[in-house]
């Protein structure tokens, strides 16, 4: 009995080995298939099952008392989402936050990358210093931001007082929104610098020389030579940041938690509040699916861009 038990896996392993290259005995799954199987299986459990659950939740009222129970409510949650001005206000804020962070990060990141690309000596240490914020946990970025702009003892608040602004940065709707935007900019501009710099170093120096010989000024060179040749890479940076901008909301959670007066309540925060404070899980699922749709649309663009690049080379 024990002999057959140990034999079976060994025989299967032999089949797997043989199936990889020998076309005559080709199995349906094959060597590469077996290599992917554990990841696909585990990820199916962690991604497909939750997705199905999320869809089911969006058509139900979910009760948590005494186990988990779903009560079918049809399209109620979806109808409610369409007519919920608070939710649409959150989407508006999300778009504002999205455009604000991404716009500043792209512009600033490109500018810094251009500056650094001229540095010849000590670029390594310089890059390390510039990249540091990227590794900081977003929740710590938020807490650190709070410490820096605290009206009584914050370092940045102290500077601002010097310039005549003495208010509580996170207490005012406008400045609070600005502050959380700038915290995100602080953390993620370095990523844009890193990506843009990789693009800039790949620009052919002889093209730049030719432009200089033709008498192109630095602005004209930037606009007509450098930017077009790194536009693909900048688009990659933009798409990656867009998807992450929908993903992360830690900074806002730990600084303003959506306030003051809902001024920073972007969609993921509303989802958390709906799902885990009011335990209205069905409605939260609708919000989640809306967010997922946005991400998938951006991911499609990203993959298409990636495949286009592969086709060119």
């Amino acid at each position: 009995m024990s002999a057959t038990r140990t034999d079976a896996p060994a025989k299967r392993a032999a089949v797997v080995r043989a199936s990889g290259g020998n076309p005559r005995r080709k199995e349906r799954i094959g060597f590469t298939g077996w290599l992917m199987a554990p990841s696909v299986g585990l990820l199916g459990l962690l991604s497909i099952v939750p997705l199905v659950a999320l869809i089911a939740m969006s058509f139900s009222r979910v009760r948590l008392l005494g186990g988990v129970r779903f009560e079918w409510v049809g399209l109620d949650n979806w109808a409610r989402a369409l007519g919920d001005p608070e939710l649409w206000k959150s989407w508006g804020l999300t778009i504002g936050y999205f455009l604000g962070t991404l716009g500043v990060e792209m512009a600033l990141g490109l500018a810094i990358a251009l500056l650094i690309s001229r540095v010849t000596r000590g670029r390594g240490p310089l890059m390390v210093l510039v990249l540091l914020p990227m590794f900081v946990a977003p929740s710590i970025v938020g807490l650190l931001g709070r410490y820096l702009v605290d009206p009584t003892f914050g370092l940045y608040a102290w500077f601002l007082r010097g310039f005549g602004f003495g208010g509580d940065v996170l207490g005012n709707p406008t400045t609070a929104f600005l502050a959380v935007t700038l915290m995100d900019v602080w953390e993620w501009t370095p990523l844009i610098v890193l990506i843009a710099l990789a693009g800039l170093t790949s620009v052919n120096p002889s093209v730049l020389e030719a432009a200089a010989l033709d008498g192109a000024g630095s602005w004209a060179t930037l606009r007509h030579v450098i930017l077009p040749s790194i536009s693909g890479i900048l688009l990659v940076a933009l798409l990656i940041r867009s998807m992450d901008a929908v993903r992360y909301f830690d900074i806002i959670t730990v600084t303003t938690n959506g306030g003051p007066a809902d001024a920073t309540k972007i969609v993921p925060l509303r989802l958390f509040e709906t799902g885990f404070r009011f335990f209205d899980l069905g409605y939260a699922a609708v919000i989640g699916l809306m967010m997922l749709a946005v991400t998938i649309a951006v991911a499609r663009l990203f993959v298409r861009l990636l495949n286009g690049k592969a086709a060119q080379s």
Binding site: G30, T32, G33, M36, V40, L43, L46, S47, V49, P50, L51, A53, L54, M57, V62, V68, M243, D244, V246, R247, Y248, F249, V267, P268, L271, F272, G275, F276, L281, A284, A285, I287, G288, L289, M291, L292, T295, I296, V298, A299, R300, F302, V303, N307
Partner: peptide, 30 residues
Amino acid sequence: TKMKGKASLSFWFISTRMAPIAAVVLPLFL
């Protein structure tokens, strides 16, 4: 791999990676 569904499979991987945490944690919690 040279399997047919390779493109869809890789798209599944990347969209799972990029899925909004707020949306994932909801069903995962249940």
